[in-house]
Amino acid sequence: MEILVCVKRVPDTAENEIEINSEGNDIERDDLVYSVNEWDNYAVEEAIQIVDKVGGSVTVVTVGDDESEEVLRREMAMGAENGLLLSDDAFEASDGKGIATILAGAVKKGNYDLILTGAQADDGAAEVGGMLAAIMDYPYASLVNTIEVQDGKLKIGREVEGGNQDMYEIEMPCVLSIQTGINEPRYVGIRGIRKVASVEIPKQGASDLGLDPSSVGEAGKKVNRVDYFVPEMGEGAEMLEGSTEEIIEKLIDYLKAKGGLK
């Protein structure tokens, strides 16, 4: 099975607190630590496990600049055979539809049976997978948390309210967005990354993909993030202050009063 996994380089929220810059129009990007979007690691792991079982190959793709190459290499160190960097000045500032359009360009150039994305990334929009499927006219399922390969089809589970799971049969080629918890993504060490450090990663732009530059990037977008800001805080919590001992004393009083201690 030929599998394409779409991945994104994002600021790592486990490593940084996200703050607004001094102009108040963007997040503070100096010293940000970046990593692969959490959901995407699960998608790549799932692809590798499928190929281990039924054969084929995994390609990881991202839309970004040269710095995005590092996330492709990381996923290749996990076991993805090929990387593909989609990069062009015309792609800059794309909205979700723009990104899906660019990815669709790469899908059309390939011969993939299955395309995976993470369920969402840092902006929480959860949109690119569903848009890509619609552009390609492929069936789609979001929030997938099991995949079983059957005769020319897949049996999948979608995670829904309350942790229940809706089971479906889906035809291929299809697009699935992967939910966290579907597997346990393997650990990648420095040595693994070194091994793939010199593998050639092809780079393709709008003309390689046969894309009209006005359909993507700034020119093609309908949805525009104008700025980042921190909203006026409501009153919020009463913050307990003092030494740890004093804080614990106040907290215990509260817990007693509210029935939190038995």
């Binding site: 840092d122 902006d123 104008v226 800001f229 909203p231």
Partner: peptide, 13 residues
């Protein structure tokens, strides 16, 4: 909207 699990908000047009 919000991004980064609610850590920052954004104006979207």
């Amino acid at each position: 909207r919000q991004e980064f699990t609610g850590q920052v908000s954004t104006h979207v047009h």
